[in-house]
Each structure stands twice: as C-alpha cells, then as structure tokens.
Write a protein that binds this DNA or RNA. Structure first.
Lengths: 190, 190
DNA sequence: ATGACCATGTAATCCGTTACATGATTCG
DNA sequence: CGAATCATGTAACGGATTACATGGTCAT
C-alpha cells in the first residue's frame, strides 16, 4: 500500500485531499500520482486507523475544507515505511512493448517516426522535472546551506532527470542507428 | 488496454497462457508483466472478440494445453496499436517517494543505507537486461546481418540498459554527495 | 511420499480511473 | 449568464495480484 504512505509523507504540514491532489499535479506526479476518487477514501480510512486526525474549517469559496494532520501513530508508521527496503514495483513501459513489436512490421520508417515521437514525450517529461527543480525553494543547486528536506528533494529530482535524460539521449542515438540501417538496406536492394 | 495488445504481439508464434507467463518471467518483465490470473481471462476474451483462435493439444504432463494463435483480425488490431502514438503510462516509483521523505528524518546514515540498497536493486535489474541480451539470438551486437525483429529487440534492451545504467550511476554519485554532506555537517557541530 | 513443475481455470480482493452528484464563488 | 475553480464525497468500472481448486508427471 504505497499511496497511503505517500500521503502520510506529504502531510508534513496539514492539508486537505484537494490540496494533496494539487501537489501531485504540480510536480509530485513525476514519481507518483492519484485522483481525488482514490485520495478521499484513502484519507478517511487512514483516519479510522488512527494515522490521521481531521478537522473542518470554513472555506472562502465552496464547501467546508476537511484538514488532515498526522497523528503520532501516523508518524511512527511513516518512519517504519521509510526504514523498510526500497520498494521496487513492477515497471510497465507500454512504449517499449510497441517498439519491440514494431520489428514484426519490418518498416523502418514507422520505427523512425515512433522514436521521434517517443523522444518528444520523454523530453517533455524532462521539462517537467526542470520546472519542479525551479519551483522548489533551494533545489536548484545544492550545498551545505540547503536543509535536509531540500537536499533530499534535490536528490530525487536529479535521479529522475538523469534517468529520463539517458532515455532522450538513447532516442537520439537510436534514430541515427535506424537511419544508417535503412540506408544499408536500400543499398542491398539494388 | 495494453496487456491484450502485448499478448497479441507475443503471439508471433502460437503459445499457451502458461508459455506467455514464462516469457514474462524470463525477461519480458523488464517492460511488462502479468500473472496467470489475468492472462487466462484476457486470452479467452480476445478469442471471443475474434483476435485469437485456440486449439487443444494433449500435453506429456499435466492437463491439455490450449494453444492460441493470432487471427488475421488480431494481426490487423496489433498493427493498428503499433501505428498509434507511444503510450506513456503514469510512472510510479515508490522508492523515490521514500527517498524524498527520508529528508524529514534528518538522518543521513539512513539515507546512505537506503541509497546503497537502491543501488543493489537497480544493478540487479541491469543484470536481468544483460541476461536477456545474451539469451536472445542475435541481440548481443547489432549490424546489418541481424533481422528486423532482432534489431528492434536490441533497441529495446539498449533503451532499458541505458536508463537503468544511468540510475546506478546516479546512486554512486549520490552516495558520494551524501558522504561529503555528512562530513561537513559533523564539522559544523564542533 | 513429498515437493516442484506442468497446466488450466475461477473467485476474492485491491488498486486506480472515470463518472456522477452537489453546491458556492469568481471571472469574463 | 456561463465557465472555471474550490471542495467533498460516492459509485461504477477496469486492471492487477493473490488465493483457491484440480490433478497429472517427475525427481529426490
């Protein structure tokens, strides 16, 4: 159950379900995401379990806000989760499946088009990471001045940026290789 | 519905549900995975839709094998899927969430331990990719001799290897940075 | 004989997305 | 006035994992 622990972590300061979704949309979505239809029930069940405590507060617009805060028990549970091993979920990359099966078509033009589109999408992801980097207080660089929280955020963003950057680079190299292969195939045909 | 199209792609040669799961376990799991409880119903519903046709055949051990093959309609559907845009699912990396929230603990020893474990797991993934590379006919290198299918497989494996390789490298760099930071923190305490 | 592997299938459960229902405020 | 945003919640559905049920073969 990762989502509940991630919500626990995000509740370092009290927030509503609506706020938490906004945080996902604003940047946290580079490592996780969830919709309101999942967030509200999750928060409710966490409160029942004693990890959270909610209070209601009027809102300038719209209905009353339900503000959640971590309890001591919730904090203990978060720490337990953090002390456990790194969680490796099964990775699912549909686009790699598409690329591998494109081999059956035997049309390198299609493969080239596909790799170009993939490159676009990956570099869009890179831009998101860049925005997140700029959007956070001190995470642009990192020295001994930054707080522990900022430092860890920086580590995570760099992790993503490196991995996605490598993907973009590979798209470029692969495009070159595909073009060369197509050229050598056309020669053979003569 | 990616799974069904991936099964369609894997059925370039006829196979049973059991075989397909074995293929996931043997290597395809670096980009997708599924359990029998999902595979059998998926194959059945694809047959009803006319994408597959099954035949039964006795097995030396165990019950009769149900062998699925693609129909012409199934092949058309696969091509349609391949010609669509690269599918970008929401990525979910629980370990990045853990890393980011480790900042709240303010214990760099914990962070270091975590990064070491993460490095181990990522390099295990790299090894899987290497095994897959060696396990496939011609995908060790890639020249104009290799078939289109082998070539595309090689592209995919390289894609994964680059991305995961970058993660491992980042773990190493991050470990260095964490150690330096801890050292400078200890100096300040004096 | 006990356990591992072959082989198929169903059912329960959980995780996630999308749609529905409600209603106030704010901006164009 | 209509659309967007604020805000909470439920319901329906689909995707994925795990457990259950069944039973044969093979090696230790």
């Amino acid at each position: 159950m990762s989502l509940e622990h991630i919500l626990l972590g995000m509740l370092r300061t009290p927030a509503t379900g609506y706020d938490l979704r906004a945080e996902f949309l604003a940047g946290a979505r580079y490592f996780w995401s969830a919709e309101l239809g999942q967030i509200y029930p999750a928060l409710a069940s966490m409160e029942q379990r004693g990890w959270l405590k909610s209070s209601r507060q009027p809102s300038p617009k719209g209905p009353q806000r339900r503000i959640y805060r971590r309890t001591a028990q919730g904090t203990r549970e978060l720490r337990r989760w953090l002390a456990s091993e790194p969680i490796m979920g099964t990775e699912r990359f549909a686009y790699l499946a598409q690329l591998i099966f494109l081999g059956e078509l035997g049309d390198l033009d299609q493969t080239e088009r596909f790799l170009q589109q993939l490159r676009e999408k990956q570099s869009a992801l890179l831009e998101l990471l860049d925005q997140v980097r700029q959007g956070t207080s001190g995470a642009a660089q990192c020295d001994s001045q930054t707080t522990d929280a900022e430092f860890h955020e920086w580590l995570c963003i760099m992790f993503g940026a490196r991995a996605v950057g490598a993907r973009v680079q590979w798209c470029d190299e692969a495009l070159e290789i595909v073009r060369r292969r197509r050229a050598s195939q056309k020669e053979k045909q003569k």
